[in-house]
Design a protein around this nucleic acid. Structure first.
Length: 870
RNA sequence: GGGCGAUUAGCUCAGUUGGUUAGAGCGUCUGCCUUACAAGCAGAAGGUCCACGGUUCGAGCCCGUGAUCGCCCA
């Protein structure tokens, strides 16, 4: 009936089979309707199609899959919607790099051919990602897989763009933006990372017009931009410079004169208190320039090189130009000083090139009205963050948000649905491409594409068919939960909330769980350059998917980064093996006893009553832990329960009696508890436990043991006593250095609750139990456990020295404990202020400690006596 | 510059509203191939909970200051 399992579990032989079966059987297909037990949905944070999945994805997908399987096992209609993100700039860069190896450039290929090449890459990467997710056992609905450039999603993008434009929330304008000279595109504020560098602060002399030999000294970190200066600003309240306001100064190295203006941008305490104003190349100066109606001079081009307007410096790279400018200033006697100046420099998130602020025509989202509503839904409790402090971080950012630059000078992405007529300068923003302009002139589409986060911001509803009114939207929006990483809280989570609330009238998810970062064993960030990357494929192959999943879950304490080590994975591979071997043993027992699959739990013996009570306890605790996203707690619960209780005690105790259907039922229940975290080994064993006649295609469709089940505290207490007594006796045996096969006698005094002494005999290897009235306090090999006085009857000599040492130590600890407790109780304020129950408990404790101390001392005396006698 | 988090056993980490002698895994030590598992079994050792101060009858937990490390934002 039951198979005899191999002695060791080999995940490689089991996991791929189920990974394929789950997908081919379409087991996890959600129904686009409201189900009786409720619907539960989650959209995947779509991985970028830049390559394959890393350990961070594996963590994310493991946590998602645990929640998804858990919810599904509760009978809900569950949707986990998978898919990928086109990841505009990131993917374009990867493909450009690939093409460069073949000596090709996108410029030489042309836009159409290049985009086709990226699609080819996308198909490859997308397949690999799907393959990896299948191998992980991700229980998603592959029939609903989406990609951000799919036709449907592209339609949603156009709809959103045009609507926002019509509502006045998208505008185009000439502003200063973050520009990457290497990628040659604008990027948003979020795509700029700030790096601390040891910069220099240059003090430069600007000759004051019509005051021969008088200078205004200005501090700058970017002397090369002097060539684009249009003013010098001083603080209006800075008394030092009052007389200069409105006067002119000469811009060094040029023939130009500019005005001294009064503006708050100049901080009296910074440098000399006077700053140069360069609207063409600095964001703050750009704003100041607007305030004062100043000209915008451009001297650096889109590649970061000096333009013709830079005169003698034309053609130089901006950093080379900086050196030359400094030299020339020095030579002209205009360099007043150079000081070390620690500062932070904006870099391109993708390629680390120093960002160059650049004035250009770009599209923007007017963000304030959207942000306001997005703050509202979080404040109003429509969305709950875990860990909770992310809510503050979110609010802080939302409150200080700037307009979002959404146009990118790239080829891979959603082309902006705007057309220009060169004849009448009309701008046409439309859902479908216009044939001609109203004036009859030809139109050309904006060449730029949208920021990749524009489309992912629509993900929770665009994937469900919006703007159509689909049954999917009806059934699954808003989604139940979002699990994602901290790094995209602003990029993605914030934008989804803004756009979801705006277009759907409802927040896109109820709960957000922010997971930690996966680091290596030394807590270093994993990176290809450091070579410390742990490849999911390699470790799943080595330890099994279940083991890696369990490791990730066990270490996923909310808010703490994960230091992933192979030691841990090895440990949990052993756990999978333990489950396997428990099954091996159980199958042998069931086979021998002829117990058929499908037995109901009918606990009668105390052992069975106990294990089913414990199973109820674990089910309740699991429900609570998973409900609060305490994955590590859930994993620990399962580990401790299954290994320390189910195997160490239940299976050992079951050896003492003929197996019954309860053994079958208890194991079956345990498998269901383990399933969300360890899907593969549980699936395999569940089917084997049913001897191939399982009531469902998968354990994933069986019910998760419900919380709140009735406990049998009497049975738990009795087995508790058994465990205490057996453990105490084993300890005594170890002290006496008894060989495992040697059976000792046992004297028992005192009375406590029920206890099956036959079990004690078997598990502690004792026999000839003798009931006595009392056991002398100074008797050797004596212990108190489970409410009984115990003494091991072992005639032969044992290591009295070691025992004496141990007792001395114990006595010291107890003496200290007794003193502490006594002091506490003697304090008048404790008795009057502490709750009654605490006082009573302390008193009880003191009595117990005192008794233990007396016993330890008596035992010590006895030992000394016998020591001197023998 | 602003903000956030961390500091607990040799290592990696738990520790929910303050209340028994602070836990786990790995590692270490001792003894065992006990008829599922040596990837195992039984037992043991190991901690001034970063420092100082405060609140409290009582602090690993709350408050303040400092140190060290890390992260985010500008």
């Amino acid at each position: 009936m039951y198979n005899e399992l191999d002695k060791a579990y080999t995940p490689r032989a089991i996991e791929p089979k189920w990974a394929t079966a789950w997908v081919e059987g379409q087991l996890f297909k959600a129904k686009a309707e409201k189900a009786d037990r409720g619907n539960w949905s989650l959209v995947i944070p779509p991985p970028n199609v830049t390559g394959s999945l890393h350990m961070g994805h594996m963590l994310e997908h493991t946590l998602i899959d645990i929640m998804v399987r858990w919810q599904r096992m509760q009978g809900k209609n569950v949707l986990w919607l998978p898919g990928t993100d086109h990841a505009g700039i990131a993917t374009q860069m990867v493909v450009e790099r690939e093409l460069a190896r073949e000596g090709k450039t996108r410029q030489a290929m042309g836009r159409e051919a290049f985009v086709e090449a990226v699609w080819a890459w996308k198909r490859q990467s997308g397949d690999r990602i799907k393959e990896q997710m299948m191998r992980l056992g991700a229980s998603c609905d592959w029939s609903r897989e989406r990609f951000t450039l799919d036709a449907g999603l592209s339609r949603a993008v156009r709809e959103v763009f045009v609507s926002l434009y019509e509502q006045g929330l998208i505008y185009r304008g000439r502003y200063i933006v973050n520009w990457c000279p290497r990628c040659q595109t604008a990027v948003s504020d979020l795509e700029v990372t700030h790096e601390a560098v040891a910069g220099k602060l240059y003090s430069v002399r600007y000759a004051i017009a019509s005051e021969e030999g008088q200078f205004l000294t200005v501090a700058t970190t970017r002397p090369e931009t002097i060539l684009a200066d249009v003013a010098v600003a001083v603080n209006p309240r800075d008394e030092r410079y009052q007389r200069l306001i409105g006067r002119e100064v000469a811009v060094p190295l040029t023939q130009r004169r500019v005005k001294v203006i009064a503006d708050e941008i100049a901080q009296p305490e910074f440098g000399t208190g006077a700053v140069k104003i360069t609207p063409g190349h600095d964001a703050n100066d750009f704003a100041a320039g607007k305030r004062h109606g100043l000209e915008q001079l451009i001297i650096i081009d889109e590649r970061g090189q000096m333009t013709e307007a830079a005169g003698a410096y034309a053609g130089l790279d901006r950093f080379a130009a900086r050196e030359r400018v400094v030299e020339d200033l020095d030579r002209a006697g205009l360099l007043a000083g150079v000081a070390a100046h620690p500062m932070s420099v904006g870099q391109c998130q993708r390629c680390a090139t120093v960002i160059e602020p650049r004035i250009s025509n770009q599209w923007f989202v007017k963000i304030a009205p959207l942000a306001e509503k997005a703050i509202g839904v979080v404040e109003g409790g429509e969305i709950r963050f875990t860990p909770e402090n992310n809510r503050r971080i979110y609010n802080e950012w939302m409150a200080n948000i700037h307009d979002w630059c959404i146009s990118r000078q790239l080829w891979w992405g959603h082309q902006i649905p705007a057309w220009y007529c060169d004849r009448c300068q009309e701008v046409i923003v439309a859902r479908e491409a216009p044939k001609l302009c109203r004036c009859g002139g030809p139109v050309r589409q904006d060449a730029d594409v949208l920021d990749t986060w524009f489309s992912s911001g629509l993900w929770p509803f665009s994937t469900l068919g919006w703007p159509e009114k689909t049954p999917e939207l009806e059934a699954f929006y808003p989604t139940s939960l979002l699990i994602t990483g901290f790094d995209i809280l602003f990029f993605w989570v914030a934008r989804m909330i803004m756009l979801g609330v705006h277009f759907m009238g409802e927040a896109p998810f109820r709960e957000v769980y922010i997971h930690a970062l996966v680091r290596d064993a030394d807590k270093q960030k994993m990176s290809k350059t450091k070579g410390n990357v742990i490849d999911p494929l390699v470790v799943t192959e080595k330890y099994g998917t279940d083991a890696v999943r369990f490791t990730l879950a066990a270490m996923a304490a909310p808010g703490t980064d994960i230091a992933l080590s192979e030691d841990r994975m090895q440990g949990y591979a052993a756990f999978a093996n333990k489950i396997w071997n428990a099954a091996r043993f159980i199958f042998l027992q069931l086979e021998r006893a002829g117990i058929a699959p499908g037995a109901q739990a009918r606990p009668e013996t105390v052992v069975d009553r106990w294990i089913f009570s414990r199973l109820e306890a674990v089910a309740t605790a699991m429900d609570q832990s998973l409900g609060e996203y305490r994955f590590h707690e859930a994993a620990d619960l399962l580990y401790q329960f299954f290994w320390r209780e189910f195997c160490d005690w239940y299976l050992e105790l079951s050896k003492l009696a003929e197996p019954t259907g309860n053994l079958w039922a208890a194991f079956e229940r345990a498998l269901r508890l383990l399933h969300p975290v360890m899907p593969f080994v549980t699936e395999e064993l569940w089917h084997q436990l049913y001897a191939g006649k399982a009531p469902a295609a998968s354990i994933a469709l069986a019910a998760f043991p419900a919380p709140g089940g009735k406990r049998d505290l009497e049975a738990e207490a009795e087995i508790g006593r058994l465990q205490e007594v057996v453990t105490a006796l084993r300890k005594l045996r170890a002290e006496a250095k008894l060989a495992p096969k040697q059976t000792a006698g046992l004297r028992v005094a005192g009375s406590s609750g029920k206890l099956d002494w036959a079990m004690v005999e078997a598990l502690a290897r004792v026999s000839a139990i003798e009931r006595v009235a009392t056991i002398a306090a100074n008797a050797p090999l004596r212990a108190t456990a489970g409410g009984y006085e115990l003494q091991l009857d072992w005639g032969e000599a044992f290591d009295a020295g070691a025992e004496r040492e141990r007792l001395r130590k114990e006595a010291t600890v107890l003496t200290q404990g007794v003193a502490n407790l006594r002091a506490k109780l003697e304090s008048a304020s404790f008795k009057s202020k502490a709750p009654q129950a605490v006082v009573a408990e302390t008193e009880r404790l003191l009595a117990e400690r005192q008794r233990q101390l007396t016993q330890a001392q008596a035992a010590l005396d006895g030992l000394t006596g016998s020591g001197s006698a023998g």
